[in-house]
């Protein structure tokens, strides 16, 4: 698989505060890649350096392909209408406005309203359309679903999957672990200015260790316990229940969410 973005040893400081201390990551063609990290971890700084929007102090960035960018914080003149903005930036990109994607994002509903009167979700959808206007190979989305309602979020997820299936490479920074879990092929966790982990979600689970949460409902009540060695722990518990003359009504095994793995990784547990 071709590498569309390669970042090596990226460093960036704001005054005396070092935000990026040697970030290395690779984004492959046709994948949805998520950059995760707590607030202030440097996700936006990393993406802005890749986008060419921010100068960096050291390291090397290679981008192979045309980028479309949806910034975390972007704005437009208060009185501009979405259809005017789309036309303007389509012209700057020597492209035609994509009506199919505009309709999918629900832009026609508010295309004649001034930008200042749009809701946060409408603004984010507009900026996403603007990012797509030049038909980029690589789409960089910084918190793409922030401010969107459930319907808008699902429509956006569907669009992102379609874009990936159409051959586009998508990089997104997000706080929404459920979103990342359902959308992304690979993830990178940025922690204390470095990449603490990069790989698939399965690889992350293996790295932080399997932490199962077992819930047992018996005739005497409900019990919940954590287990790493699921087989021996569960067998011992079941044996104890049988010996006590009790019977199992329900059994649930939760293998842990991406969020829990992320917290373990960024807190330094099991690493």
């Amino acid at each position: 698989m071709n590498e569309k973005i390669q970042v090596q040893g990226l460093t960036k400081s704001y005054g005396a505060h070092a935000v990026l201390k040697g970030v290395d990551l690779t984004v492959r063609e046709g994948e949805i890649f998520a950059l995760l990290g707590v607030n202030g971890a440097g996700k936006t700084t990393t993406l802005e350096c890749v986008e060419g929007m921010r100068k960096y102090d050291g390291g090397h960035i290679t981008v192979r392909g045309k980028m479309g960018i949806q910034l975390q914080s972007a704005s437009l003149p208060a009185h501009i209408k979405p259809k005017e903005a789309v036309r303007l930036f389509a012209m700057w990109n020597h492209a035609r406005p994509n009506t199919q994607i505009a309709e999918m994002l629900g832009i026609p509903v508010f295309e004649n309203k001034p930008y200042a009167s749009l809701s946060t979700g409408q603004k984010r959808r507009l900026h996403l359309l603007l990012a797509l206007v030049g038909d980029p190979d690589i789409l960089i989305l910084d918190e793409p679903t922030a401010g969107l309602d459930v319907e808008g979020r699902l429509a956006l997820h569907e669009l992102i999957r379609r874009l990936r299936d159409g051959g586009k490479t998508i990089v997104l920074a997000s706080h929404d672990m459920a979103e990342v879990e359902s959308l992304c092929d690979r993830i990178a966790v940025l922690h204390e200015g470095k990449i603490a982990f990069a790989g698939t979600q399965r690889e992350l689970t293996e790295k932080v260790g399997r932490h199962y949460t077992v819930t047992l409902q018996t005739t005497r009540g409900k019990a919940q316990f954590a287990a790493e060695d699921i087989a021996s722990t569960l067998l011992a518990r079941l044996q104890a229940i049988r010996d006590a003359g009790d019977s199992v009504l329900d059994l649930q095994i939760d293998r842990g969410t991406l969020e829990e793995h992320f917290i373990r990784l960024t807190k330094g547990e099991s690493v």
Partner: peptide, 17 residues
């Protein structure tokens, strides 16, 4: 100032202007 003192400047650059 509305353009250059705010994020409009970033949106212009990000979208090719």
């Amino acid at each position: 100032a509305e353009v250059y003192g705010t994020d409009i400047k970033k949106a212009y650059r990000a979208n090719g202007a």
